[in-house]
Amino acid sequence: MGETQSSATFRVWRGDATGGGFCDYRTAVAPGMVVLDAIHQIQAEQANDLAVRWNCKAGKCGSCSAEVAGKPRLMCMTRLSELALEAPVTVEPMRAFPLVKDLVTDVSWNFRAKRTITPFTPRRPDAPDGTWRMQQADVDRVQEFRKCIECFLCQDVCHVLREHHLEEQFIGPRHFVYTAALEMHPLDVADRVPALKRSNGIGFCNITKCCTKVCPESITITDNAIIPLKERVVDEFYDPVGRLVKLFSRRQRP
């Protein structure tokens, strides 16, 4: 167990867009420590300018995403006791995004991509006082998606973005989860299915479930968000009977 050791070596990626390499730092290890603690200790004691993005340190804000020992993780939720500390622990930035410096990447594309998705569009209020009625069972399904902390680890691990860099044609798992939350929202009446097929590129996803595996919030991204959205695209565009029916009946609009 790592927790009995008194120190460990962290092989931290240092550098910026022009280049860089790994640097080894040996630092003290105490019971209960997480990777982010080790990075902070290194920053305070050995490398004041080591760049790392973090906020809540409790797995709620999704800022400290990185690749620890080769796996996309939140540094604040990765305990040293889960890692083999006999050898150096590599800590490197997310690889799918452009590097800013050290462990910090430029994730701004994610914010731009989100803005292209049709925002929440509610039906008319149910009650005269302007409020709505929803059952808990109906909100439960969507609440799973709304747990997302926007750590972008799912984006980092998705081969469409990581290897193929199709950012212009594909919004990535995070935004499929966001779209699913809107499409399955009990009050929402907008139709995002045509966009999913065209500009959002849902067809590029070939359901390898890498995103689901790395989600720190355990959102069942592929099964509960992406596959149902793919089914909607199929129903809308590839079902001959459905197309015929649609020809004669207009989809209800708000």
Partner: peptide, 20 residues
């Protein structure tokens, strides 16, 4: 709070479907 709901927030519900 009601305005947040109109902007898409999904609060836990009472049995009669209002905000718990």
């Amino acid at each position: 709070v009601r305005e947040l709901e109109a902007w898409g927030a999904l609060f836990d519900r009472t049995r009669d479907g209002r905000i718990l």
